[in-house]
Design a protein around this nucleic acid. Structure first.
Length: 304
DNA sequence: TACTCGTGGCG
DNA sequence: TCGCCAAGAGT
């Protein structure tokens, strides 16, 4: 049975899509990873922190950092009471340290606007620093058990393959992606929240980008991409991202120096990280503009 | 829209 | 080995 085979009426399409969500949820119930932010007693704040850390960073690297973070800053008020530089330092090597700065600003905004409680509606979440279309819905669904399409790269890929028969999700088109996922969600809010995390888990563990484990997939007999013979992606391959030697790389070197020091660092220390003076200047200017670094005369520090 | 923004795991 | 990719957000 395929979705398309049932799509000659709206009613039967509805039945087929609900079967997909139920199948994936059943799979999730026995195959999901035991991640701490998925525990029933995980606080909304701890869920929010996990979602920000997981933006472009793998679970294996996030988990230890998340434990340390939650022990030190169990509520938004705890984080807001410390300087943003401490958040950047604790972020360690998770990457994209602007996320740490925004998470600190997010905690401050939660204290100021929401009396220290993580808001439970998508619009209020969207208004917080560092919380975008994905994270707002993820927090609403996973922390507050609401029914929202939660569309990350995993879900986009699963839907592209199972429903559309494509190898990948192609370019992100947020409104269309939200609609495509919305029709797959059960009406019940708790069931929808479970289906949302189940779709993500399937994309992360089975329906992966490079070597999908279709033999272990609960949707293998239904998947449009599989039934079409798993054709390769047709669009242009995405531009390859290099890293070593880029401005981003030099920024990373400078941030590592600052994280390692409890005291202001002489500018000369940053000159030692990379030979190209022009590139160093660009990197430092960028860090200053982002607010990740403060300059006081010939010294630089993390923001106090 | 397309680009920038870290760091590391993995096939 | 090395290029792809990773629970995106902001501009």
């Amino acid at each position: 049975m395929t979705v398309t085979a049932y799509s000659f009426t709206g009613l039967s399409l509805r039945i087929a899509t609900e079967a997909i969500a139920q199948t994936v949820t059943d799979w999730y119930d026995t195959n999901a990873r035991d991640l701490p932010w998925r525990q029933p007693d995980a606080s909304p704040w701890s869920v929010l922190v996990s979602e920000v850390m997981l933006q472009q960073t793998q679970v294996s690297r996030v988990e230890p950092a998340w434990h340390r973070w939650m022990e030190r800053w169990p509520t938004p008020a705890h984080l807001a009471a410390d300087p943003p530089g401490e958040a950047i330092r604790a972020w360690d090597r998770l990457g994209y340290p602007r996320r740490a700065l925004r998470l600190h600003a997010c905690a401050t905004a939660i204290v100021e606007r929401h009396d220290g409680e993580v808001p439970d509606d998508v619009d209020a979440l969207l208004a917080l620093p560092g919380i975008g279309m994905y994270t707002a819905r993820a927090v609403a669904a996973f922390a507050f058990r609401q029914r929202h399409p939660v569309v990350d790269t995993n879900v986009r890929r699963v839907v592209a393959r199972v429903v559309e028969g494509a190898a990948d999700g192609g370019a992100a088109t947020t409104p269309a992606d939200l609609r495509a996922v919305e029709v797959l969600l059960p009406d019940d809010h708790e069931a929808a929240a479970r289906a949302s995390v189940a779709f993500m888990e399937l994309g992360a563990m089975i329906c992966t980008a490079r070597a999908p484990r279709c033999a272990a997939c609960p949707l293998t007999t239904v998947c449009a991409w599989r039934l079409a013979g798993s054709p390769p992606a047709d669009g242009p391959s995405r531009r390859t991202q290099r890293y070593h030697g880029t401005d981003r790389y030099v920024r990373g070197l400078m941030m590592a120096v600052l994280r390692a020091s409890d005291e202001p660092v002489p500018l000369g220390r940053l000159d030692e990280v990379w030979p190209d003076a022009q590139q160093r200047q660009r990197a430092l200017d960028g860090l200053l503009a982002d607010g990740l670094v403060r300059r006081r005369g010939a010294m630089v520090t993390l923001p106090g």
